[in-house]
Nucleic acid binder design. Structure first.
Lengths: 257, 257
DNA sequence: CGGTTCATTGATTCGCGTCAATGCAGGTGG
DNA sequence: CCACCTGCATTGACGCGAATCAATGAACCG
């Protein structure tokens, strides 16, 4: 599985801020800037065929049409889901309506972690979506009989944490251009694999969703995208298709100033 | 404690964005605005006495003095830790030195999740710290023999995810004042329990750390704090002690505009 | 074909970052 | 014991980046 760490200590004091040596080495090896993210672990990948069969048997198919709610924050959490097709957005929102999109879930992704007995986040279908739904009780029962299942969930959760951390860096410390570039690179890697260089990306979600994912306003997202177009880094045919012409330059923008 | 209330939403920007079923219910019940966060699940709490004993036996004590490195991002992840005393900061940083603090870990907290075989984040002691260190191999072996252990980790990870989501809302959508107020409320709840009203908080970390946690500059954090002082919401005796005089007003600021 | 939804573009405002001093406490050593 | 230094906090002046406000366009749909 994956866990952790190091040798303790080294008294390096970090001084990230102050010191931060000039040639800071290639520290920060595997974050935004590295090729992480490439693949999301899925339940299916983590389990054997027999286990998968049992899991499948325990679930039921749910179809949800685009722009409709799968579950809402605060709702009693009595199901877990796997995305079979389509894209789902996970979000949190503030009382006054400000919204933060936590992530977009694609086929294979697991959905519905809840620490307490209610969902912390909401989930809505971006496109028409097909899900496999597992009732909470049934799922827990299955966990008892399938030790690997918990291990798989743990791997998935650890991966989500990693992604959440990158997301936090983006939200807390990157400029608008960096964020949009990061987003495009992220989507590119996810859909095309690590080797991705120039091809076209499908962005099924409205720009408002991208904005809320990136912590920006819609206008800013739009402006940055047109700037990328003028620069020749991307091109766009239809509303939801973006072609990456200069992946390298996007990566450069995403990675630093 | 404290809640949010706020009636739902009323279509302000977002309007739950299109679909969002009509009666959106009292959405957003348990997020920043609710009493979540109160307690972090710990390995110890999740396990029985025998299991705890085995776990303790598997670990070794490590002492780390303030401002020193526990592990660095990218380092091979071969240990896990539990904080016994003191405070540890977890952070990610960008090649040019910008830093985002992911969280502050307190006694009882578990440390060292890594999805791949390297740490995604770094960890440094804020104060002098005592940790219990578990070698990766030993820990994995223990997992085999202790089914509850994986379950406990899963609970912890789910909780971390929940906190990460709140953090993202803060970083992506809150103003400087909201962030600082949220932070103070968060610390208050953590240290004083849910019922906390006015008392003094210990903030062992320098303001630079707080700034990097909140995605702000040091100056902004300082300015907001002095503004809170002038407002009468807080008071401060020594550098690292803040007394909360008007918890309610902080909560109000944290929760909305 | 007219209405709804979403993207674009411009003008303007303003929050917060940056730069630059100054202040202040704690530790150290002469 | 007091000057000094060093880390950290505070405060001010200033500018920039991104939000906001406000139209206009383009695409999609019944």
């Amino acid at each position: 599985m994956s866990q952790c760490d190091d040798l303790p200590t080294q008294i390096l004091r970090h001084d990230a801020r102050r010191a931060r040596s000039p040639v800071d080495d290639r520290s920060v090896p595997g974050s935004l800037w590295a090729g992480r993210w490439a693949r999301t672990p899925t339940l299916e990948d983590e389990l054997g065929p027999a286990e998968n069969a049992r899991l499948t048997a325990a679930g039921s198919i749910v179809d949800t049409s685009r722009q409709t709610v799968v579950f809402t924050p605060g709702e009693h959490a009595d199901a877990l889901y796997t995305v079979l097709s389509g894209v789902v957005r996970i979000f949190a929102s503030m009382p006054d309506g400000r919204r933060q999109i936590i992530g977009f879930m694609h086929p294979g992704d697991f959905l519905g972690f809840a620490y307490e007995d209610v969902y912390a986040c909401g989930a809505e279908a971006v496109t028409d979506v097909r899900l496999r739904r597992y009732g909470r009780r049934a799922f827990l029962a299955l966990c008892e009989r399938t030790p690997n299942l918990e291990r798989a969930l743990l791997r998935i959760a650890a991966h989500e944490l990693t992604m959440a951390q990158d997301h936090m860096v983006m939200l807390g410390r990157q400029s608008a251009r960096e964020r949009v570039a990061s987003f495009l690179c992220q989507v590119a890697r996810r859909t095309l694999g690590l080797e991705a260089r120039g091809t076209s990306l499908w962005l099924p979600m409205p720009q408002a969703d991208i904005a809320d994912y990136l912590g920006l306003s819609v206008e800013t997202v739009s402006r940055v995208l047109t700037w990328f177009k003028q620069t020749g880094a991307i091109r766009s045919r239809s509303r939801d298709i973006v072609e990456i012409l200069d992946f390298t330059s996007l990566e450069r923008i995403a990675g630093e100033a």
